[in-house]
Design a protein around this nucleic acid. Structure first.
Lengths: 135, 135
DNA sequence: CTACCCCTTCCAGTGGGCTGGAAGGTCAAG
DNA sequence: CTTGACCTTCCAGCCCACTGGAAGGGGTAG
């Protein structure tokens, strides 16, 4: 159960570069090394990477994941923090979806009127240029 | 109707930096200069910036806007291209909204089960870690 | 003259999550 | 011995739309 970085990366579906990058961000503790300097990992690291993957899939940034991991490593159950982060994510997601929906409406309205605007005079492109009421 | 860059920027609601940046990207043609090298703009530039602002609000990237403007400057009505870009934007928007909606569902389900997962043993944080079926 | 604001150019940094590449060390197989 | 896969470090770049700052010139008011 001792892995070099390439093996760990393969199991986690990442590149060795990414593992080293995570270590540089403090997401993974500095692992023990062989005399030649090769990093050596165990199953705890694999689980940690699985946790990171799950948190990433939920939309947490690496900085947020690091915060949670730091709490855990300090012996504090990170769950309260996780709930707070999740709630914030949810609020941001809602806001983002609203703005996307608004843009989508604008785009669809424009798209519907586009044929009538093609070739409008005195402007760069009537589709974009003319006000919503026109057409 | 001759403006220096600061004046034009103020009218367009941009910074002089941004105007120069747009020029460097080819969104604005290189304007005439005073003997001292100051850029001089006219109402056509103001309209061009208004067009850019509108296109940006629709979600076009500066590269896409440049493409449209290049077509226009070459004497080709850009409307066909605009329609294609708009359609692509719409498809991307839909895909993005679907993925956001999926993440939102996952987040909400997780959030609902969170209390039962707090303090789960043998993992970093039960809220994130446990499978969807758990709880 | 100074003060002050505007203008010029060019270089560099922001954020996020990597990725590429150079230059070199290590280790097992053939 | 060589080959080749793997490892190490460090620096640099990607995307996007700017933004900051340095270093210097221009133009006008007092």
């Amino acid at each position: 159960m001792t892995l070099r970085i390439g093996e760990l990366a393969a199991r986690a579906g990442l590149s060795p570069k990414t593992i080293r990058y995570y270590e540089s961000l403090g997401l993974l503790p500095p692992p023990p090394r062989t005399p030649a300097g090769y990093r050596l990992y165990g199953s705890a690291d694999e689980e940690r990477l699985a946790f990171i993957a799950r948190a990433k899939a939920l939309g947490l940034s690496l900085a947020e994941i690091r915060e949670v991991l730091d709490l855990h490593d300090a012996g504090t159950p990170p769950c309260d923090r996780v709930v707070a982060v999740l709630d914030r994510k949810l609020a941001m997601l809602d806001a983002q979806m609203r703005s996307l929906a608004a843009r989508r409406e604008a785009l669809i309205a424009l798209r519907r009127r586009a044929p009538a605007r093609v070739g409008a005079d005195g402007c760069i492109c009537g589709i974009i240029e003319l006000g919503v009421s026109a057409g």
